[in-house]
């Protein structure tokens, strides 16, 4: 009986060691994050995503968004890429990309994921300080 109990504990212990590491998000991540200052001066009118097929059977995530300016304004934007586990995938640029918009102008911006393992993204729009 004691041997059976020990064997069961050992099996359970090994099973515990073999379990895959899990990642979990503490709050729901939004694809689009727009700072309040930006909302006053422009509106995001489109946000599209597609996967670009690659010859090796994989695909790259590609996103495109459009903003329409209500007044002459400046915009800073950045896309952060995530893999299936929610981990950040590094890309070449760390900084925000800046753009100028004229009143009534609709501008289209796009970004391509740095690796095929990217499955999701977060686009952040903010007002540059300078």
């Amino acid at each position: 009986m004691k041997i059976l109990l020990l064997a069961s504990l050992l099996v359970l212990g090994l099973a515990g060691c073999a379990s895959q590491p899990e990642t979990r998000s503490l709050s729901e991540r939004q694809n689009l994050k727009v700072d309040p200052e930006v909302i006053y001066t422009m509106a995001v009118t489109e946000l599209f995503e597609e996967r670009l097929a690659q010859p090796d059977g994989t695909s790259l995530l590609h996103v495109q968004f459009a903003v329409e300016a209500r007044s002459d304004t400046e915009l800073a934007w950045k896309v952060t890429w995530f893999d299936a586990n929610g981990m950040v995938v590094k890309s070449v640029g760390e900084g925000y990309r800046k753009a100028t918009l004229l009143t009534g102008q609709v501008r289209y911006f796009s970004a391509t994921a740095p690796h095929a393992r990217v499955t999701s993204y977060q686009l952040h729009l903010r007002e540059p300080k300078l």
């Binding site: 790259l60 590609h62 890309s91 070449v92 640029g93 900084g95 796009s110 740095p114």
Partner: peptide
């Protein structure tokens, strides 16, 4: 340099 490199790499990847 970061902007130029980002633009170049993203375009290279997207263009295939």
């Amino acid at each position: 340099f970061e902007k130029a490199a980002s633009d170049a790499v993203e375009d290279m990847l997207a263009s295939g």
